[in-house]
Computed example of a mutant assay.
Amino acid sequence: MTIRLPAADGTLRAYEPRTEPQAFSAGTPFTSRTVFSAAHVVADPYADVSPGSPAAVDWDATLAFRRHLWSHGLGVAEAMDTAQRGMGLDWAGAAELIRRGAAEARAVGGRIACGVGTDQLTAGSPAGIRAAYEEQLAVVEEAGAQAVLMASRALAAAAKGPEDYLVVYGHLLRQAAEPVILHWLGPMFDPALEGYWGSADLDAATETFLEVVAAHPDKVDGVKISLLDAQREVDLRRRLPQGVRCYTGDDFHYPELIAGDDQGFSHALLGIFDPLGPLAAEAVRVLDTGDVKGFRELLDPTVELSRHLFQPPTRFYKTGVVLLAWLAGHQSHFTMVGGLQSARSLPHLARAYELADSLGLFPDPRLAEERMKSLLSVYGVDR
C-alpha cells in the first residue's frame, strides 16, 4: 500500500508506510536521569464551543494519555506549554487539569510536576503578579504535585529591569513548600517573553537567572532551559549550585544534552517526549546501563522529526504533537482546544506523519495510514 503525500511545492508524491511498528515495552522509572514528558490535552470534539470560549477537554482521553506515559516510566509535566497554556487553555482549565492529573498520578504511582504561572492576568503590577503566582502555586501544592515556576507574560510586560525579577521570584521561592523547577522559556516559544529576566541580552539575562538560583538553592530542584541553544545550556548548567539539576527543554539538541559530557549532563522536561514517549523511555533505559552509544543510536534519529515539529513559528509545535497522538491511536480525533489544529499546513502535517512512521512510532501503522488518508481527503487529496 502507498499513500500520496503533498509536498511544500504543491505536488503529490507516493510514500510507502512501514508495516510493523517498533516494539517498546512498559518499564519502571529511570536510574540515571529524571525525565518528564510535557503532555498535551485532548479536546472534546463534540463540545459546542466558539473562538474565545473556555476550552472543552475530554478528561478521560487526556488522563489515559498520561497513564500511557507513566506506564513507560516517564514523569508527566502537567499544564505546561504543551498543554496549550495561554494558547487555548485558560487558568480555570489548567487548574482542573492540575487537580485531575495529580489525583491520577497518586492513583498509579506516577511522577508529576505542574506549571505555575500568571495566565489569569492580562497585565498587572508586580504585587498583582506575585498574587497570581501565589494563587497558582497554592493549587499545585494542595494537589500534592511539584511546582514548575513558568515564565510570566505579565511580568515580562511589567518589569522595569532585573530587580523586579529578583523580587518576584525571591518572594515565591521563600514561601514554596518544596523545591521547585524554574522554567526559562525563550521568545521562540512565546514572543511575549522577549527580554525575560530583565534583558534581551541573553548573557545579562543569564546572570540574573543564576542570581535567583544562587540566592535560594535549597528551594530550587532544578532549572528547565528552553532556548534552543545547546552551548548556552551547557555553559549555564556548569554554573549551577551543587544539587540543582538542569532539565533540558531544548527540542533541537536533546540527545547530546541528556547524554552529557565529562563535566555533567542534563535531565529532561520536553514536549517532544509526548510523541516520542515509549522510544525515549527505551533510550534512557539503555543510558541507565552506561551505554551512551546505544542511547544516541536510538534517540539521534528522532531529531529530524523534532526539528520539523518545532520549526518556526515554534509555538505551534503542539499541532504536530496532537496529530501524532491521533495517528497513534491515543485519541479518536484531530481536534484541539482553541481550534489549533489549523495552525500548520497540510504539507507540514504530511511530513510529520512520514517522519514518525519511519521511526516506527505508530503502534498500528495501518490505523495511522488510514487516519492520514482520511485527513488528506478532507483537504481534497484523492485517495
Rank of each mutant, 00 (worst) to 15 (best):
A283W: 11
E369S: 13
I98K: 14
Q263G: 08
G128T: 06
I258H: 06
P54M: 03
Q311E: 13
D300G: 03
L74M: 15
R174G: 09
F295W: 08
Y133M: 11
E134T: 15
F362R: 10
D60C: 00
A151W: 03
F265T: 12
A8N: 04
T248N: 06
M188I: 13
F273C: 09
R106Y: 12
E194G: 02
M87E: 11
H267L: 13
H171G: 03
M80L: 13
M336L: 03
L359C: 07
E78G: 05
L367V: 10
G115A: 13
D164M: 12
L287G: 01
D262C: 06
P347R: 11
D357N: 06
H183K: 02
S25K: 15
V220T: 04
V286S: 02
I112T: 13
D48E: 10
P313D: 10
L193P: 03
E297L: 06
G339W: 00
L340C: 02
L172S: 14
A215T: 08
G170A: 08
L323Q: 04
H171K: 10
P217G: 10
S37L: 07
R174K: 14
Q331F: 01
Q136S: 13
G380P: 00
Q242I: 06
V76H: 05
D235G: 04
R111A: 12
A352K: 01
H171F: 07
A113C: 15
V234H: 13
Q263D: 10
D58K: 00
E142M: 15
Q311L: 03
Y317A: 02
I225D: 15
E370Q: 14
A215G: 04
A138N: 10
A138I: 10
W70F: 01
R366A: 13
S53W: 01
T208C: 07
I129Q: 05
S342K: 15
W326N: 11
E178C: 11
F273T: 15
T2R: 13
G195H: 09
